[in-house]
Design a protein around this nucleic acid. Structure first.
Lengths: 197, 197
DNA sequence: TCTTAAACTGTCATTATTGACAATTAATGC
DNA sequence: GCATTAATTGTCAATAATGACAGTTTAAGA
Protein backbone atom coordinates (compact mmCIF):
# COMPACT_ATOMS: atom_id res chain seq x y z
CA UNK A 1 0.00 0.00 0.00
CA UNK A 2 1.41 3.35 -1.07
CA UNK A 3 0.46 6.70 0.40
CA UNK A 4 -0.41 8.06 3.78
CA UNK A 5 -2.08 5.43 5.97
CA UNK A 6 -5.79 5.94 6.53
CA UNK A 7 -7.03 6.63 10.04
CA UNK A 8 -10.53 6.84 8.69
CA UNK A 9 -12.12 4.30 10.98
CA UNK A 10 -10.75 5.67 14.24
CA UNK A 11 -11.44 9.26 13.18
CA UNK A 12 -14.92 8.24 12.17
CA UNK A 13 -15.60 6.73 15.57
CA UNK A 14 -14.20 9.84 17.26
CA UNK A 15 -16.30 12.16 15.13
CA UNK A 16 -19.43 10.08 15.61
CA UNK A 17 -19.03 10.11 19.38
CA UNK A 18 -18.81 13.89 19.29
CA UNK A 19 -21.84 14.00 17.02
CA UNK A 20 -23.84 11.77 19.35
CA UNK A 21 -22.92 13.90 22.32
CA UNK A 22 -23.83 17.15 20.58
CA UNK A 23 -27.11 15.78 19.28
CA UNK A 24 -27.93 14.54 22.77
CA UNK A 25 -27.38 18.02 24.17
CA UNK A 26 -28.58 20.33 21.41
CA UNK A 27 -30.83 18.21 19.23
CA UNK A 28 -30.51 17.26 15.59
CA UNK A 29 -30.67 20.82 14.26
CA UNK A 30 -28.94 22.41 17.20
CA UNK A 31 -25.77 20.45 16.68
CA UNK A 32 -23.68 22.71 14.45
CA UNK A 33 -20.49 21.58 12.76
CA UNK A 34 -18.54 24.07 14.83
CA UNK A 35 -19.86 22.57 18.08
CA UNK A 36 -19.15 19.07 16.90
CA UNK A 37 -15.64 20.11 15.96
CA UNK A 38 -15.08 21.67 19.38
CA UNK A 39 -16.45 18.57 21.09
CA UNK A 40 -14.18 16.32 19.04
CA UNK A 41 -11.17 18.61 19.41
CA UNK A 42 -10.91 18.95 15.64
CA UNK A 43 -11.54 21.67 13.08
CA UNK A 44 -14.78 22.28 11.31
CA UNK A 45 -13.60 21.52 7.76
CA UNK A 46 -12.25 18.21 8.99
CA UNK A 47 -15.60 17.28 10.44
CA UNK A 48 -17.17 18.11 7.15
CA UNK A 49 -14.53 16.06 5.37
CA UNK A 50 -15.58 12.98 7.31
CA UNK A 51 -19.30 13.55 7.63
CA UNK A 52 -20.16 15.20 4.33
CA UNK A 53 -23.07 17.60 4.15
CA UNK A 54 -25.83 17.80 6.68
CA UNK A 55 -28.10 15.27 5.05
CA UNK A 56 -25.28 12.72 4.91
CA UNK A 57 -24.42 13.58 8.49
CA UNK A 58 -27.90 12.68 9.73
CA UNK A 59 -27.87 9.49 7.70
CA UNK A 60 -24.51 8.62 9.25
CA UNK A 61 -25.87 9.30 12.72
CA UNK A 62 -28.85 7.10 12.05
CA UNK A 63 -26.66 4.22 10.91
CA UNK A 64 -24.26 4.68 13.78
CA UNK A 65 -26.84 4.86 16.55
CA UNK A 66 -29.04 2.04 15.34
CA UNK A 67 -26.10 -0.21 14.52
CA UNK A 68 -24.41 0.53 17.84
CA UNK A 69 -27.61 -0.35 19.62
CA UNK A 70 -27.76 -3.68 17.87
CA UNK A 71 -24.09 -4.45 18.46
CA UNK A 72 -24.12 -3.42 22.10
CA UNK A 73 -27.23 -5.47 22.68
CA UNK A 74 -25.64 -8.49 21.09
CA UNK A 75 -22.43 -8.04 23.07
CA UNK A 76 -24.34 -7.56 26.29
CA UNK A 77 -26.37 -10.70 25.80
CA UNK A 78 -23.32 -12.72 24.87
CA UNK A 79 -21.65 -11.59 28.10
CA UNK A 80 -24.49 -12.65 30.39
CA UNK A 81 -23.73 -15.43 32.86
CA UNK A 82 -25.35 -18.85 32.73
CA UNK A 83 -27.09 -19.05 36.07
CA UNK A 84 -29.15 -15.86 36.44
CA UNK A 85 -28.96 -13.98 33.13
CA UNK A 86 -32.14 -12.00 33.77
CA UNK A 87 -30.94 -10.52 37.03
CA UNK A 88 -27.51 -9.80 35.55
CA UNK A 89 -29.16 -8.05 32.63
CA UNK A 90 -31.18 -5.77 34.88
CA UNK A 91 -28.14 -5.09 37.05
CA UNK A 92 -26.19 -4.03 34.00
CA UNK A 93 -28.89 -1.83 32.49
CA UNK A 94 -29.26 0.13 35.70
CA UNK A 95 -25.61 0.32 36.65
CA UNK A 96 -23.69 3.56 36.04
CA UNK A 97 -21.24 1.36 34.21
CA UNK A 98 -23.66 1.42 31.31
CA UNK A 99 -21.09 3.77 29.77
CA UNK A 100 -22.22 6.46 27.36
CA UNK A 101 -25.67 5.01 26.96
CA UNK A 102 -27.51 8.13 28.17
CA UNK A 103 -26.15 10.15 25.26
CA UNK A 104 -26.90 7.29 22.95
CA UNK A 105 -30.47 7.02 24.17
CA UNK A 106 -30.91 10.79 23.89
CA UNK A 107 -29.62 10.72 20.33
CA UNK A 108 -32.05 7.90 19.65
CA UNK A 109 -34.81 10.05 21.12
CA UNK A 110 -33.82 12.92 18.83
CA UNK A 111 -34.04 10.60 15.84
CA UNK A 112 -37.36 9.30 17.12
CA UNK A 113 -38.82 12.80 17.27
CA UNK A 114 -37.79 13.44 13.68
CA UNK A 115 -39.23 10.07 12.66
CA UNK A 116 -42.64 11.70 12.39
CA UNK A 117 -41.30 13.45 9.27
CA UNK A 118 -39.46 10.53 7.67
CA UNK A 119 -41.11 7.19 7.03
CA UNK A 120 -37.82 5.35 6.48
CA UNK A 121 -36.36 6.66 9.68
CA UNK A 122 -39.54 5.76 11.50
CA UNK A 123 -39.40 2.18 10.29
CA UNK A 124 -35.71 1.90 11.13
CA UNK A 125 -36.14 3.22 14.67
CA UNK A 126 -39.15 1.03 15.25
CA UNK A 127 -37.35 -2.08 14.08
CA UNK A 128 -34.37 -1.21 16.22
CA UNK A 129 -36.49 -0.85 19.32
CA UNK A 130 -38.49 -3.98 18.62
CA UNK A 131 -35.21 -5.81 18.04
CA UNK A 132 -33.95 -4.65 21.41
CA UNK A 133 -37.14 -5.78 23.06
CA UNK A 134 -37.01 -9.12 21.25
CA UNK A 135 -33.46 -9.70 22.47
CA UNK A 136 -34.38 -8.95 26.08
CA UNK A 137 -37.45 -11.11 25.77
CA UNK A 138 -35.37 -14.00 24.45
CA UNK A 139 -33.07 -13.80 27.45
CA UNK A 140 -35.95 -13.83 29.89
CA UNK A 141 -37.71 -16.66 28.11
CA UNK A 142 -34.66 -18.84 28.41
CA UNK A 143 -34.29 -17.82 32.05
CA UNK A 144 -37.94 -18.50 32.85
CA UNK A 145 -38.94 -21.33 30.50
CA UNK A 146 -41.89 -22.44 32.61
CA UNK A 147 -43.59 -19.03 32.69
CA UNK A 148 -46.18 -18.30 30.00
CA UNK A 149 -44.97 -16.04 27.23
CA UNK A 150 -47.27 -13.04 27.72
CA UNK A 151 -46.07 -12.63 31.29
CA UNK A 152 -42.42 -12.76 30.22
CA UNK A 153 -43.03 -10.33 27.36
CA UNK A 154 -44.71 -7.90 29.72
CA UNK A 155 -41.77 -8.06 32.13
CA UNK A 156 -39.33 -7.37 29.28
CA UNK A 157 -41.45 -4.46 28.14
CA UNK A 158 -41.52 -2.99 31.61
CA UNK A 159 -37.77 -3.32 32.11
CA UNK A 160 -37.09 -1.57 28.82
CA UNK A 161 -39.55 1.22 29.59
CA UNK A 162 -37.91 1.83 32.95
CA UNK A 163 -34.45 1.77 31.41
CA UNK A 164 -35.32 4.19 28.60
CA UNK A 165 -36.96 6.45 31.13
CA UNK A 166 -33.94 6.59 33.39
CA UNK A 167 -31.58 7.17 30.46
CA UNK A 168 -33.62 9.85 28.72
CA UNK A 169 -34.20 11.76 31.96
CA UNK A 170 -30.54 11.61 32.91
CA UNK A 171 -30.00 15.32 32.08
CA UNK A 172 -32.40 16.20 34.89
CA UNK A 173 -30.16 14.69 37.54
CA UNK A 174 -33.08 13.08 39.29
CA UNK A 175 -32.53 12.27 42.97
CA UNK A 176 -30.92 8.96 43.84
CA UNK A 177 -34.00 7.39 45.30
CA UNK A 178 -35.83 8.10 42.08
CA UNK A 179 -33.37 6.10 40.02
CA UNK A 180 -33.26 3.41 42.65
CA UNK A 181 -37.02 3.09 42.59
CA UNK A 182 -36.82 2.34 38.87
CA UNK A 183 -34.12 -0.22 39.51
CA UNK A 184 -36.06 -1.87 42.31
CA UNK A 185 -39.16 -1.94 40.16
CA UNK A 186 -37.29 -3.69 37.36
CA UNK A 187 -36.04 -6.33 39.79
CA UNK A 188 -39.54 -6.71 41.09
CA UNK A 189 -40.75 -7.55 37.61
CA UNK A 190 -38.29 -10.43 37.63
CA UNK A 191 -39.44 -11.41 41.09
CA UNK A 192 -42.95 -11.63 39.70
CA UNK A 193 -41.69 -14.12 37.15
CA UNK A 194 -39.97 -16.12 39.89
CA UNK A 195 -43.25 -16.38 41.72
CA UNK A 196 -44.92 -17.90 38.68
CA UNK A 197 -42.37 -20.63 38.13
CA UNK B 1 -61.21 50.57 27.79
CA UNK B 2 -60.18 52.47 24.68
CA UNK B 3 -58.45 51.01 21.64
CA UNK B 4 -58.59 47.81 19.70
CA UNK B 5 -59.62 44.91 21.93
CA UNK B 6 -56.80 42.56 22.82
CA UNK B 7 -56.91 38.98 21.57
CA UNK B 8 -53.59 38.38 23.23
CA UNK B 9 -54.62 35.40 25.29
CA UNK B 10 -56.27 33.43 22.48
CA UNK B 11 -53.50 34.32 20.03
CA UNK B 12 -50.94 33.35 22.62
CA UNK B 13 -52.53 29.95 23.10
CA UNK B 14 -52.71 29.47 19.34
CA UNK B 15 -49.09 30.44 18.86
CA UNK B 16 -47.92 28.29 21.77
CA UNK B 17 -49.73 25.24 20.39
CA UNK B 18 -47.97 25.73 17.06
CA UNK B 19 -44.68 26.17 18.90
CA UNK B 20 -45.20 23.00 20.90
CA UNK B 21 -46.03 21.07 17.79
CA UNK B 22 -43.00 22.35 15.89
CA UNK B 23 -40.65 21.73 18.80
CA UNK B 24 -42.04 18.22 19.13
CA UNK B 25 -41.28 17.55 15.47
CA UNK B 26 -38.10 19.52 14.81
CA UNK B 27 -36.56 20.09 18.21
CA UNK B 28 -35.82 23.32 20.03
CA UNK B 29 -33.38 24.65 17.45
CA UNK B 30 -35.07 23.09 14.46
CA UNK B 31 -38.29 25.00 15.03
CA UNK B 32 -37.84 28.15 12.94
CA UNK B 33 -40.17 31.12 13.17
CA UNK B 34 -41.24 30.50 9.59
CA UNK B 35 -42.29 26.94 10.39
CA UNK B 36 -44.12 28.04 13.50
CA UNK B 37 -45.91 30.69 11.48
CA UNK B 38 -46.93 28.14 8.85
CA UNK B 39 -48.14 25.75 11.54
CA UNK B 40 -50.19 28.48 13.20
CA UNK B 41 -51.47 29.87 9.90
CA UNK B 42 -49.99 33.27 10.68
CA UNK B 43 -47.11 35.38 9.41
CA UNK B 44 -43.60 35.30 10.75
CA UNK B 45 -43.49 38.89 12.04
CA UNK B 46 -46.69 38.25 13.94
CA UNK B 47 -45.17 35.25 15.65
CA UNK B 48 -42.24 37.36 16.60
CA UNK B 49 -44.61 40.06 17.83
CA UNK B 50 -46.13 37.64 20.32
CA UNK B 51 -43.11 35.52 21.22
CA UNK B 52 -40.29 38.06 21.16
CA UNK B 53 -36.79 36.92 20.30
CA UNK B 54 -35.59 33.37 20.45
CA UNK B 55 -34.47 33.45 24.04
CA UNK B 56 -37.84 34.78 25.16
CA UNK B 57 -39.51 32.20 22.96
CA UNK B 58 -37.79 29.33 24.74
CA UNK B 59 -38.59 30.85 28.10
CA UNK B 60 -42.23 31.12 27.03
CA UNK B 61 -42.24 27.51 25.91
CA UNK B 62 -40.78 26.43 29.22
CA UNK B 63 -43.44 28.29 31.17
CA UNK B 64 -46.21 27.04 28.93
CA UNK B 65 -45.23 23.38 28.96
CA UNK B 66 -44.48 23.13 32.65
CA UNK B 67 -47.53 25.11 33.66
CA UNK B 68 -49.78 23.14 31.32
CA UNK B 69 -48.48 19.95 32.85
CA UNK B 70 -49.31 21.15 36.30
CA UNK B 71 -52.75 22.41 35.31
CA UNK B 72 -53.70 19.33 33.34
CA UNK B 73 -52.54 17.13 36.17
CA UNK B 74 -54.63 19.08 38.63
CA UNK B 75 -57.68 18.99 36.37
CA UNK B 76 -57.24 15.29 35.75
CA UNK B 77 -57.06 14.49 39.42
CA UNK B 78 -60.05 16.66 40.22
CA UNK B 79 -62.07 14.79 37.59
CA UNK B 80 -61.31 11.32 38.96
CA UNK B 81 -64.28 9.34 40.32
CA UNK B 82 -64.67 8.41 43.96
CA UNK B 83 -64.76 4.64 43.82
CA UNK B 84 -61.74 3.53 41.78
CA UNK B 85 -59.65 6.61 41.08
CA UNK B 86 -56.46 4.64 40.42
CA UNK B 87 -57.96 2.52 37.69
CA UNK B 88 -59.65 5.55 36.15
CA UNK B 89 -56.33 7.39 36.19
CA UNK B 90 -54.55 4.61 34.32
CA UNK B 91 -57.42 4.29 31.87
CA UNK B 92 -57.17 7.96 31.08
CA UNK B 93 -53.39 8.10 30.73
CA UNK B 94 -53.39 5.29 28.21
CA UNK B 95 -56.51 6.29 26.29
CA UNK B 96 -56.12 8.02 22.92
CA UNK B 97 -58.37 10.68 24.39
CA UNK B 98 -55.31 11.96 26.19
CA UNK B 99 -55.49 14.77 23.63
CA UNK B 100 -52.33 16.48 22.44
CA UNK B 101 -50.22 15.00 25.20
CA UNK B 102 -47.75 13.26 22.85
CA UNK B 103 -46.61 16.61 21.44
CA UNK B 104 -46.54 18.01 24.93
CA UNK B 105 -44.43 15.16 26.21
CA UNK B 106 -42.10 15.46 23.23
CA UNK B 107 -41.68 19.17 23.86
CA UNK B 108 -40.96 18.33 27.48
CA UNK B 109 -38.37 15.86 26.28
CA UNK B 110 -36.76 18.54 24.11
CA UNK B 111 -36.55 20.83 27.13
CA UNK B 112 -35.18 17.97 29.19
CA UNK B 113 -32.37 17.38 26.70
CA UNK B 114 -31.39 21.03 26.85
CA UNK B 115 -31.56 20.94 30.64
CA UNK B 116 -28.03 19.58 30.69
CA UNK B 117 -26.92 23.07 29.61
CA UNK B 118 -29.13 25.16 31.87
CA UNK B 119 -29.29 24.66 35.62
CA UNK B 120 -32.52 26.64 36.05
CA UNK B 121 -34.28 24.69 33.34
CA UNK B 122 -33.01 21.47 34.85
CA UNK B 123 -34.42 22.33 38.24
CA UNK B 124 -37.74 23.43 36.74
CA UNK B 125 -38.17 20.25 34.70
CA UNK B 126 -37.18 18.08 37.62
CA UNK B 127 -39.65 19.77 39.94
CA UNK B 128 -42.36 19.47 37.33
CA UNK B 129 -41.79 15.77 36.92
CA UNK B 130 -41.54 15.15 40.64
CA UNK B 131 -44.74 17.13 41.09
CA UNK B 132 -46.48 14.94 38.56
CA UNK B 133 -45.25 11.85 40.33
CA UNK B 134 -46.29 13.23 43.70
CA UNK B 135 -49.79 13.89 42.41
CA UNK B 136 -50.15 10.37 41.03
CA UNK B 137 -48.73 8.96 44.22
CA UNK B 138 -51.25 10.92 46.29
CA UNK B 139 -54.12 9.49 44.28
CA UNK B 140 -52.89 5.95 44.72
CA UNK B 141 -52.23 6.42 48.41
CA UNK B 142 -55.79 7.50 48.98
CA UNK B 143 -57.01 4.61 46.85
CA UNK B 144 -54.86 2.05 48.69
CA UNK B 145 -54.56 3.37 52.24
CA UNK B 146 -53.68 0.01 53.74
CA UNK B 147 -50.71 -0.65 51.44
CA UNK B 148 -47.28 0.45 52.65
CA UNK B 149 -45.98 3.62 51.04
CA UNK B 150 -42.91 2.27 49.22
CA UNK B 151 -45.06 -0.19 47.31
CA UNK B 152 -47.51 2.53 46.29
CA UNK B 153 -44.69 4.87 45.29
CA UNK B 154 -43.14 2.19 43.15
CA UNK B 155 -46.43 1.56 41.38
CA UNK B 156 -46.83 5.27 40.66
CA UNK B 157 -43.30 5.43 39.34
CA UNK B 158 -43.90 2.49 37.04
CA UNK B 159 -47.15 3.89 35.69
CA UNK B 160 -45.48 7.21 34.90
CA UNK B 161 -42.52 5.53 33.23
CA UNK B 162 -44.82 3.49 31.04
CA UNK B 163 -46.89 6.54 30.17
CA UNK B 164 -43.90 8.71 29.28
CA UNK B 165 -42.52 5.87 27.21
CA UNK B 166 -45.68 5.44 25.19
CA UNK B 167 -46.03 9.18 24.63
CA UNK B 168 -42.42 9.86 23.66
CA UNK B 169 -42.32 6.92 21.26
CA UNK B 170 -45.59 7.92 19.63
CA UNK B 171 -43.82 9.18 16.46
CA UNK B 172 -42.66 5.63 15.80
CA UNK B 173 -46.21 4.34 15.41
CA UNK B 174 -45.47 1.26 17.45
CA UNK B 175 -47.78 -1.71 16.81
CA UNK B 176 -51.01 -1.90 18.77
CA UNK B 177 -50.00 -4.83 20.92
CA UNK B 178 -46.94 -2.90 22.00
CA UNK B 179 -49.01 -0.05 23.38
CA UNK B 180 -51.49 -2.47 24.85
CA UNK B 181 -48.72 -4.30 26.65
CA UNK B 182 -47.78 -1.06 28.35
CA UNK B 183 -51.39 -0.45 29.30
CA UNK B 184 -51.83 -3.98 30.63
CA UNK B 185 -48.61 -3.64 32.61
CA UNK B 186 -49.81 -0.44 34.22
CA UNK B 187 -53.06 -2.10 35.25
CA UNK B 188 -51.05 -4.99 36.60
CA UNK B 189 -49.17 -2.65 38.87
CA UNK B 190 -52.49 -1.65 40.37
CA UNK B 191 -53.49 -5.30 40.63
CA UNK B 192 -50.32 -5.86 42.65
CA UNK B 193 -51.52 -3.21 45.08
CA UNK B 194 -54.94 -4.87 45.28
CA UNK B 195 -53.26 -8.11 46.27
CA UNK B 196 -51.53 -6.40 49.18
CA UNK B 197 -54.61 -4.84 50.69
C1' DT C 1 -65.77 61.67 13.49
C1' DC C 2 -61.61 61.41 15.98
C1' DT C 3 -58.49 59.43 19.17
C1' DT C 4 -56.32 55.56 20.96
C1' DA C 5 -54.44 51.09 21.69
C1' DA C 6 -53.49 47.09 19.83
C1' DA C 7 -52.99 43.72 16.15
C1' DC C 8 -50.75 43.06 12.01
C1' DT C 9 -47.44 43.68 7.91
C1' DG C 10 -43.20 44.94 5.07
C1' DT C 11 -38.66 45.28 4.75
C1' DC C 12 -33.77 45.23 5.46
C1' DA C 13 -29.30 44.83 7.78
C1' DT C 14 -26.87 41.51 10.56
C1' DT C 15 -25.47 37.20 11.76
C1' DA C 16 -24.68 32.33 11.80
C1' DT C 17 -24.16 28.37 9.21
C1' DT C 18 -23.30 25.78 5.53
C1' DG C 19 -21.20 24.02 1.06
C1' DA C 20 -17.49 23.78 -1.75
C1' DC C 21 -13.01 24.03 -3.45
C1' DA C 22 -8.13 24.94 -3.49
C1' DA C 23 -3.98 24.43 -1.02
C1' DT C 24 -1.01 22.35 2.34
C1' DT C 25 0.94 18.94 5.23
C1' DA C 26 2.03 14.23 6.71
C1' DA C 27 3.22 9.52 6.16
C1' DT C 28 4.19 5.52 3.56
C1' DG C 29 6.39 2.46 -0.32
C1' DC C 30 9.73 2.37 -3.87
C1' DG D 1 14.81 11.48 -2.26
C1' DC D 2 10.45 10.89 -4.94
C1' DA D 3 5.90 9.76 -6.01
C1' DT D 4 1.56 8.85 -4.05
C1' DT D 5 -2.26 8.90 -1.21
C1' DA D 6 -4.92 10.66 2.34
C1' DA D 7 -5.47 13.71 6.18
C1' DT D 8 -5.80 18.36 7.31
C1' DT D 9 -6.36 23.31 6.81
C1' DG D 10 -7.76 27.99 4.74
C1' DT D 11 -10.86 30.64 2.62
C1' DC D 12 -14.95 32.53 0.59
C1' DA D 13 -19.41 32.83 -1.63
C1' DA D 14 -24.23 31.45 -0.88
C1' DT D 15 -27.94 30.68 2.02
C1' DA D 16 -31.09 30.84 5.75
C1' DA D 17 -32.54 32.69 9.98
C1' DT D 18 -32.90 36.23 13.08
C1' DG D 19 -33.59 40.95 15.10
C1' DA D 20 -35.34 45.19 14.72
C1' DC D 21 -38.08 48.90 13.38
C1' DA D 22 -41.16 51.68 10.83
C1' DG D 23 -45.47 51.66 9.00
C1' DT D 24 -50.47 50.17 8.24
C1' DT D 25 -54.83 48.51 9.50
C1' DT D 26 -58.54 47.43 12.74
C1' DA D 27 -61.78 48.01 16.39
C1' DA D 28 -63.23 50.09 20.24
C1' DG D 29 -64.74 54.49 23.10
C1' DA D 30 -65.46 59.57 23.52
Amino acid sequence: MVGRPSNRDERYAQVMQALVRCVARFGLEGASLTQIAAEAGLTRPLIRHHLGNREEMIAALQNYVLQSFAEQTEALIAALPEDKPGAALVDFLFSDTAGSSPDMVLAFAALTARASEDADLRAACRESLLGFEAAITAVLRRDYPQVDHPAVDAAAHGIIALYLNVASLAPLNMPQDWTQTAYALARNLLKGLDARS
